[in-house]
């Protein structure tokens, strides 16, 4: 029986949008966080990274750009900056999926943490070059580290609850291509 029908992909995209909006909502809740406290992990970033490696067709480029542009706008960040960085990171990963799929979880974790650190560094460098008042680089890197630390948890939740896993051997989509 053909389990993979087009509707499957779109329902996962809808799930991504729903999760993204939910995460934005949780972030703007007025639960006080003192200035200079350690930032919470960027769950949306971890989610995007884990889904890109496992099922890149669930996250078309435009969807990622749109979602991160929205978070930039709602979270009072320079609009487009983080979206640009994340898009660069996901395109980098998307072109190397077949290599990444061969890695174990630890290898994948290392690659993703490097990409996350590079994304944060890239956004910081662009902000510095365009003379925006930048936040403390150390605090931003701590934010990157907390996101990296949360990555395996997000992978586990995606796998267990949302059934986003790497395609098994022999799994093909309806055009006969290996997914």
């Amino acid at each position: 029986m053909n389990r993979d029908f087009r509707g499957d992909v779109w329902s996962y995209r809808g799930l991504y949008i729903f999760l993204g909006l939910g995460i934005i909502f949780l972030k703007i809740l007025p639960i006080p966080q003192t200035a200079g406290a350690w930032p919470y992990p960027d769950i949306l970033l971890c989610l995007t990274m884990s889904w890109i490696i496992r099922r890149p067709e669930y996250l078309p480029t435009l969807l990622i750009a749109f979602m991160f542009l929205l978070t930039d706008l709602f979270l009072m960040r320079p609009p487009g900056l983080m979206a640009f960085g994340v898009l660069a990171g996901t395109e980098f990963l998307r072109n190397r999926i077949y290599i990444l799929r061969e890695l174990s979880l630890i290898g994948e974790w290392i690659v993703v943490s490097l990409v996350i650190i590079l994304i944060f560094a890239l956004t910081h460098v662009i902000a510095f070059l365009t003379v925006i008042s930048t936040t403390n680089f150390g605090l931003e890197m701590i934010g990157a580290l907390t996101s990296i630390a949360a990555y395996p948890l997000v992978v586990w939740v995606s796998n267990a609850f949302f059934k986003v896993h790497k395609p098994a051997m022999g799994e093909v989509d309806e055009r006969g291509h290996r997914r």
């Binding site: 972030k27 809740l29 006080p32 003192t34 930032p39 709602f74 009072m76 403390n136 931003e140």
Partner: peptide, 15 residues
Amino acid sequence: VVLADSGSPFRQSIL
């Protein structure tokens, strides 16, 4: 009434 905040510890603002 405070509705929301800016969502990150880097930008201190409230709505």
